[in-house]
Design a protein around this nucleic acid. Structure first.
Lengths: 355, 355
DNA sequence: ATGAAAGCGCTAACAA
DNA sequence: TTGTTAGCGCTTTCAT
């Protein structure tokens, strides 16, 4: 049926081994030989059978990417990059969704997986570092973002403190002085972002006003809207800027401001976090911290490769980010839709990862 | 190392074949035997090696999903559903992006693929039905949405005419009489949506006013914004409603209306197409046609299964859709963020596909 | 530098 | 109903 390695060997008049050597880029093959084999490959239209190759090599040929939900813009974009990074390593990516279900997350950790995989890129929402540390499965694992990893596995992170600080400094640079924050100041990633927020204020000699901090029960738009409503209903003078822990939350805050008849950014400037594509299409377009997702993806895949090679020291790996300035802080004059191709325009580079 | 079929057989004191029978759900196995084998599977912690299974069965164990770009909300959501549908068939999904590159699309068609796959779910942007018809590769193929297929392969579609007609009828029900359309009236999917638009108008005895129709060079937000600007700059009285061929375009139109000081929906009602998640977070939230993506995904996977079983008659398969009414037509009083869980609320059911 | 042959773990004829 | 065994297509010692 489909041409096999043997067919190529026959056509070229050599052994399977030689063909295999050529295909796998083994160095000690004469140029003439290589050319001859390659020609034969062309002629018969050969393409390797990955199932067989993986069986022989003792690997699965795929890794799993476990995310809460693929239709969340951040994870959609991240997945795109993981796909690309994994392809370079000859890995196919099996994407699995947890939808924030603890049981599903546990199942993933304990290796109860539909398929056997060479590695696991996991973006947990619920499981604790303890649980992760105690897992029995030996599949290489790398954790993404959000929850702390406490050294139980490789962990790819952006420097949330620095990023938040950059975002808030941008607001202060615009002469805003009452900068609110929507997000939890005591827990997880939000806490780090709060630290950055506080640090930026401190740098200008400003104090944190607890009235201006509102936690959100979830990172959804409606939560952001409710939190903004609460802030506006507070006793003190109205804030002139808001830093939101995610873009979804920021979109909700913008909505609330709108409904209160306040203009963004004239009355209140808004900055988000994540740089989801929608931030480019909203009215106004949304200023946001943009994690270098491509770098996250590359680092994750590289980590799995390294672990497969036997490297089992858990590391924390930081990747870069940028502040993308759009209308929600810079005003309507800034730019309209800033779509990917033109993304560089309104961008302040920052801490790009070396690789 | 990892337990193999033989290990289970040894543990249970039976042959590999018996274990294989149990694992694959072969019917003629005694209950006692089955229980014994299952116990042994548990004890040794066995999980099948898919590479080996696929090699033996002569299948790849995966299908490819080829989309323009994974971080576009529509495709992100679609991918999510394809993942789920494929999993039920024991298929892993390899996602590949074309980014609208004709060459990449051609490569896919001609089977120049990184991996060998059992089937291809392809959402083309550029290649013509002719090219598709002439492909030499015999891998089962199913086409999604957009471009017509002309009977060269299975094709999953929503009834664009009916959907557009429903959207426009909704506008007319709100007593709008000057309904504009942003989208190309002469080509591809847009043409079908135009037909629906025209049909809805005709049903009320209204005529199509060419002044109110604007094509867009792309389905991006900025194109929608430009088109809306053009319509507003037109000579006749201003429209009181707009039907946009995609949500991105609609978001751009909303933006344009905003910048012109017009209120949505009081002055101009807007309806989009696709129901991208952002439509739930925008201000105002966006009324839209929501294709039944889960059904699209199921139908696509089912098509590949059927083709694998030897069914090679190309079919056109229609799936259902709904009109999701939100603020851009119903007004701010309607509802705030309508997120998935609560999605049913503001929904008019329509033409759900049988399966 | 190239060839011969032994598996990788599983499925499916064929036997029993 | 269960067991035996020959491949599936490739990689990889071990020879040459």
């Amino acid at each position: 049926m489909k041409p096999r390695l043997q067919d190529v060997a026959d056509r070229a008049g050599v052994s399977m081994k030689t063909v295999s050597n050529v295909i796998n880029g083994y160095v000690h093959v004469s140029e003439a030989m290589r050319a001859k084999v390659l020609a034969a490959v062309e002629e018969v239209g050969y393409r390797p059978n990955l199932s067989a190759r993986n069986l022989a090599r003792g690997r699965a040929g795929m890794i799993a990417l476990v995310v809460p939900q693929l239709d969340m813009p951040y994870f959609a974009s991240l997945s795109m990059h993981v796909l690309e990074a994994a392809e370079e390593q000859g890995w196919v990516v099996l994407i699995q969704q947890t939808r924030g279900d603890v049981e599903k997350e546990r199942a993933v950790l304990s290796g109860r997986f539909a398929q056997r995989v060479d590695g696991l890129v996991f973006s947990p929402l619920r499981v604790t570092p303890d649980e992760i540390g105690q897992r029995s499965d030996r599949t290489p694992l790398v954790l993404l973002g959000e929850r702390p990893a406490d050294g139980v596995a490789d962990h790819i992170v952006v420097d949330n403190v620095a990023a938040a600080s950059l975002a808030v400094s941008h607001l202060l640079d615009l002469d805003r002085r009452r900068v609110a924050m929507i997000g939890n100041s005591t827990v997880g990633t939000d806490r780090q972002r709060f630290e950055g927020y506080a640090a930026a204020l401190a740098q200008r000699g400003l104090e944190v006003d607890p009235e201006l901090i509102r936690p959100v029960p979830s990172n959804r738009g409606e939560a952001g809207e409710a939190a903004m409503n609460a802030i506006l209903a507070g006793p003190g003078p109205r804030p002139d800027a808001v830093f939101c822990v995610t873009d979804w939350v920021a979109l909700g805050a913008v909505r609330s401001l709108h409904l209160h008849g306040l203009r963004v950014p004239e009355d209140v400037a808004v900055v988000g976090f994540d740089d989801i594509p929608y931030g480019r299409a909203s009215t106004p377009t949304l200023t946001s911290i943009s994690p270098d997702r491509a770098a996250v993806a590359r680092a994750a895949v590289a980590s799995l490769s390294a672990q497969q090679e036997g490297d089992r020291e858990p590391r924390e790996i930081a990747v870069g980010f940028e502040l993308v300035v759009r209308e929600s802080t810079a005003g309507m004059g800034a730019s309209a839709f800033v779509e990917p191709a033109a993304l560089d325009d309104a961008t302040l580079p920052f801490g790009r990862a070396p690789s």
